[in-house]
């Protein structure tokens, strides 16, 4: 109930949320000549590097159109990564506001996630252009468009999960600045522990598969891959499990944040 009352407040602050997210994007690309294109360049370069390693060097042939396979998992991961990393330092980065004016502090990490969401949308647009190009070589990939509406369910789940974790680390980082550094390392491990650059079936040793069930990102990534690469509806179990993880993440993150929030100004 306590959380619900707060959520209602957030709706009243939608104008501010919009301004804060806009500010995040502006500051991110200020003083950079290519500006917004950097956010597109990043996944494209990552894709090229991994394609080179897997397809050219390892001569890996098990996955058709590896680049699409990779991007289908990389884009949601990048969003998650940016939201959590950005969230971790967000309160400190905005200390000039936090120490001077009152507004619900949770708007800060949420606005960071919103800014990342804008990036994700742009990346998805580029991804779809890529799908069209590939579609001319192999028309079956046009079917991706048929399954796109599933993103309406998957994106909110991904957003909720990421925001929950972002709120948690944002609040903890005010008290313990090491969190930011720990997060960087954890996220790297987490990236390789999630089926983004590889698939589970036929690649992961069977002994390790149970561990993947413990990783909340597995279900989310697999759901995105179903839609964006395999061209079929995501497994209902994955979706429900992701939703469950997302709600847990959000509730814990938000509860911890609200508990620590009132003393931010004093700690900064």
């Amino acid at each position: 109930m306590y959380l619900l009352a707060h959520l209602k407040d957030l709706i009243e602050y939608k104008e501010l949320l919009y301004n804060l997210a806009k500010k995040e994007l502006k500051i991110k690309y200020k003083n950079s000549a290519l500006g917004f294109f950097w956010s597109l360049l990043n996944p494209i370069l990552t894709m090229l590097v991994f394609s080179l390693v897997f397809v050219v060097i390892f001569k890996f042939k098990g996955i058709e159109y590896y680049s699409i396979f990779l991007l289908a998992g990389l884009l949601p991961w990048n969003f998650f990564n940016a939201s959590v990393m950005g969230g971790a330092g967000s309160i400190i980065a905005n200390s000039s506001l936090v120490k001077k004016v009152y507004f619900p502090r949770e708007l800060i990490p949420i606005s960071v996630a919103l800014a990342s969401l804008v990036n994700l949308f742009l990346e998805l647009l580029v991804f779809l252009v890529f799908i069209i190009v590939v579609g001319f070589l192999s028309p079956k990939y046009f079917a991706v468009f048929k399954f796109l509406p599933y993103l309406v369910i998957l994106l909110p789940i991904l957003f909720l999960f990421s925001v929950g974790l972002a709120l948690l680390v944002a609040a903890l980082n005010v008290y313990l600045r090491d969190i930011q550094h720990i997060i960087t390392i954890l996220l790297m491990v987490w990236f390789y522990a999630s089926p983004i650059i590889y698939k589970i079936d036929g690649m992961v040793p069977p002994k390790l598969i149970p561990f993947y069930k413990l990783n909340p990102m597995t279900d989310i990534i697999l759901s995105f891959k179903s839609v964006l690469y395999w061209r079929h509806a995501p497994n209902l179990n994955w979706v429900l499990l992701s939703l469950f993880y997302a709600i847990i993440s959000f509730l814990i993150g938000y509860a911890v944040f609200l508990r620590l929030e009132p003393d931010f100004a004093e700690e900064l």
């Binding site: 104008e15 301004n19 500010k23 502006k26 000039s96 506001l97 120490k99 004016v101």
Partner: peptide, 26 residues
């Protein structure tokens, strides 16, 4: 409060006016 309201140093005066306005619920 002490030396000005919450402005974000990287934003322009104009952007800060709009940011602050929305903080105050406008």
């Amino acid at each position: 409060l002490e030396l000005g309201t919450g402005f974000h140093p990287e934003l322009t005066g104009r952007e800060n006016v709009f940011l602050n306005g929305s903080i105050l619920g406008l």
